Amino acid sequence: MSEEIFLMKGNEAIAHAAIRYGTDGYFGYPITPQSEILETLMDEAPWETTGMVVLQAESETSSINMVYGGAACGKAVFTSSSSTGISLMMEGFSFLAGGELPCLLINVMRGGPGLGTIQPSQSDYFQAVKGGGHGDYKLITLAPATVQEMADFVALGFDLAFKYNTPAMILADGAIGQMMEKVKLPPFKARRTEAEIREQCPWATLGKPADRKPNVITTLELDAHKMEVHNLKLQAKYKKIEKELNMHQEINCEDADYILVAFGTAARICQKAMELARAEGIKVGLIRPITLWPYPSKAIDKYASQIKGILTVEMNAGQMVEDVRLAVNGKVKVEHYGRMGGIVPTPHEVLDALKNKFDC
């Protein structure tokens, strides 16, 4: 049977999908609200069935450096954490991006700043989409809104990472990580052989054939001109990704007077708010960005001249709203509504905010 249906949490779905993808290794450290990823992997013991390595490192810093080592060998490796733990990994993210190493990073967001709360939040948008760490780099960033997408985006994230030789991130919030829904898990996929890794990743440090110099993967370059050449190469790749990758969902936008823009849990809430608004005769549509980077700016801009306003709904103080304003470039009024500290807005709150900000 190639397709099986289960009831599970979003975090559990990620773990099962990773095993079935043929992932070579996971290196992580527990932190709420994503600890079930590591717990599920330990319960499933894939090292006995698929050969996958599962290791709880001594810290987040150790975890991300283990990912760097595995990725440098061309292996399909990943880590997961939440907000404060992700902050500790930022140096490693920059090293992975600078070294052009494919891997999967997962952030199940909690409220902040500081230690904050274990409740769900979307306040790490800047951290993921704007780079977070040092240097001019980008992370392909996928924003799931369902438990099914938590499972589906594991394979998608890995495939994109290996296609473009760059880290990819699944940016979820604590609500998606903890909620339970029905999930169709993918069939099992065999782990790649060393020969397949050499073919897909000729740069991998798997030991050198007799006729080849050893591969050295490093992000250190003391010659400023050579460093600039490398940076220009990275920027050209990012432009290519922006041209080729644009994932979003549009609902009821064709006849809309107002459009809600939201991702993750906030998008689920906005879909209900949209239904409430239309029941009152207010024509509201919804755009849900799925790739937060590259951002689906053109999808939003194409409606700018035919609507009266855009409301971004985020579980933060207003972060994605900046990208929406850049997308429409002043063609239409853009407002933000958000809750912070782990509070999840309600559909009625969203509808009230829309009415108050646009007098509709």
Rank of each mutant, 00 (worst) to 15 (best):
E244L: 15
I37D: 04
I259Q: 06
A72E: 07
G174D: 03
L104D: 02
V313G: 07
L156F: 00
K163L: 00
A266I: 02
F358E: 00
G116D: 02
P186V: 13
G69F: 01
F6I: 15
M8K: 09
W47K: 03
S94E: 07
V284Y: 11
E36Q: 06
P209F: 11
I310A: 10
G330P: 08
T166I: 10
P102T: 01
G22R: 11
L232T: 01
E275N: 06
K130R: 05
P33I: 12
A304M: 12
P144R: 08
E275I: 03
A266M: 11
N231M: 14
A161D: 01
C103G: 07
N165F: 04
K9F: 05
E250Q: 05
V328E: 08
Y164W: 11
G51D: 13
I170M: 10
M66R: 03
I19Q: 00
L220F: 10
G131M: 08
G318F: 09
K272H: 12
E221H: 02
A175F: 12
Y164E: 09
L101D: 03
G285R: 11
A128T: 02
A13T: 00
A17I: 02
Y26F: 14
E228P: 03
L101W: 04
I269D: 01
L206S: 13
E100Q: 08
T84P: 07
V183L: 02
K130W: 07
K213Q: 13
I241G: 09
L260T: 08
P46T: 11
N231D: 09
Y337W: 06
T312H: 11
P202G: 07
K182N: 13
E196Q: 15
K298R: 15
K333Q: 15
G309Y: 07
A277F: 08
E196V: 05
Q319G: 04
P144Y: 07
F27L: 05
P187E: 08
I19D: 01
Y164Q: 11
E100L: 01
N316A: 15
V324A: 03
V53E: 12
E48W: 09
Q56A: 11
F95K: 00
L142P: 14
G112I: 07
S35I: 06
F6Q: 13
A304C: 08
E36C: 00
I300G: 04
G330W: 13
T312Y: 09
F188G: 00
V216H: 07
D211N: 11
E58Y: 06
P144D: 09
E244N: 15
E181F: 02
Y238S: 13
H336Q: 05
T312A: 10
C270E: 01
M247Q: 12
D323K: 13
